[in-house]
Design a protein around this nucleic acid. Structure first.
Lengths: 249, 249
DNA sequence: CCGGGCGGCTGATCCAGGTCAAGGCATTCA
DNA sequence: TGAATGCCTTGACCTGGATCAGCCGCCCGG
């Protein structure tokens, strides 16, 4: 970990007495705080986390092929992961909102299997993976949290794999975004799309024209209101009904 | 774990002296044997593994919604995982060959998120997950193997998610099968397809008619020879070329 | 203030692959 | 041995969404 500008230790002022403070967006805070670890263990965990950023729009967090050293939780902003296929075309693999963890698919390879780029101003909590894995052997709650995160992503990837219509895919995408924002305390029915139409299209395996047309039709039918990146869900039940077969609640 | 017919302890006769024997197909054997654990740890691992089966064709190994207790490595045969979507249609999620591990996506939910069914005569190594996770805290190599398995599956799921033609998908499917068989010592260029055309089609998000037609065309072009379930790869380089954009070597 | 570029929207056309329909060929069971 | 069943194949047709082309409007830099 080189000392880049903007990097600083995780809440360095927190170790002021009996208590450690973990940033609220860290996916690991729950695991850290849920049971009675002794002070030295908490300190170990604390030390191996660092806040990095801000990354500006278009700046890369890691690139395909780079050696894997760390996973990171998004603290603010949106990260897009993608690969470049044999024909030189971009393939969007996912979008990561605050609270979500990037880099998990790199564990089995030893190097990152995809690129990660900031779509807006991004802050991260960065965890050295060897260190957190070592610590997990002494903190079963942390180990379990890691297993859960990894297992979750297996299921997530299966979603967009299905054989669904453009309408179902778009509806599912919107509902998923909404839920993920809601889980972090943002408004579930109105939010900014931080990616372009063609990023969405690429992720959903549609053409960007199709995304435009579906948005237009959803709006005509009163399901949503969308103006540039500003999106509002007007008839959530209807959208959820469309998304139901994809999301399989 | 109830005592079903066919269940028995993992190689119960093996604990006859200084050495434990692990079955060669177990995904964990490497992790267990790679470094010098003491005898009591090996015994712990040994005890929490059980051989189950045989499951006959059509028999279920677990069903969606059942409480998650164990992951399992396939020792022999082929397992298909699938879900039933909102409209009552089956969605095939994957096929698991000898040496591969089923049940990983259940970790984050506490119950199985899909069904697993035997496509032919299936033998399993079954691992109680709570026990193996607990043991992993004392065996870093085992923990790492679990992380690797989970992380691998994240990447695997991304494969079939892409936006590929029927030819590319079929080619990638055949090459992937071939490699997986080869990794377990089976012939890489000739093997039995253990699933029906419509299972393949469903998995690849195609119609079964399309699978038939692609097989026919591949055969006419001299790429493969296929007769019912018996498949031979005649022009591997050409098939690999087709699959390249999907598999992204 | 203007011009260029990118992101986004819309209409016209096309085609890969889905759907429907009709057999064929093993396997199983009566 | 024949009938039923499931799996597979092939042909004819149809359609959702890709592709192509053109345009608009915002943003940014000169």
């Amino acid at each position: 970990m080189k000392d880049v500008p903007g990097r600083r230790l995780h809440n360095p002022i927190a170790d002021d007495g009996d208590e450690f403070h973990f940033c609220s967006t860290c996916a690991f805070s729950a695991a850290c705080l849920d049971s009675g670890y002794d002070k030295s263990q908490l300190r170990d965990l604390h030390v191996l986390v660092e806040h990095t950023g801000p990354f500006r729009e278009g700046e890369h967090i890691f690139r395909e092929g780079e050696p894997f050293t760390a996973i990171a939780a998004v603290r603010a902003g949106t990260v897009k992961t993608y690969v470049i296929d044999a024909d030189g075309h971009e393939q969007v693999q996912g979008f990561f909102l605050p609270g979500e963890v990037i880099g998990l698919s790199a564990i089995s390879h030893g190097h990152y299997p995809c690129n990660a780029v900031a779509l807006d101003s991004v802050l991260l909590c960065r965890f050295s993976f060897p260190n957190i894995a070592a610590l997990a052997t002494r903190m079963p709650g942390l180990q379990h949290q890691l297993f859960r995160l990894l297992s979750q992503d297996i299921g997530k990837a299966a979603l967009l794999a299905g054989n669904y219509s453009a309408d179902e895919r778009m509806a599912a995408f919107l509902i998923a975004l909404s839920r993920r924002y809601a889980a972090r305390g943002f408004s579930p029915n109105r939010f900014q799309l931080s990616m372009t139409r063609s990023d969405m299209a690429n992720y959903l395996r549609l053409a960007s024209e199709t995304v435009s047309r579906v948005f237009r039709r959803f709006q005509d039918e009163g399901l949503i209101r969308v103006e540039r990146r500003d999106l509002e869900l007007l008839n959530r039940p209807a959208i959820e009904a469309l998304a139901r077969s994809v999301l399989r609640d």
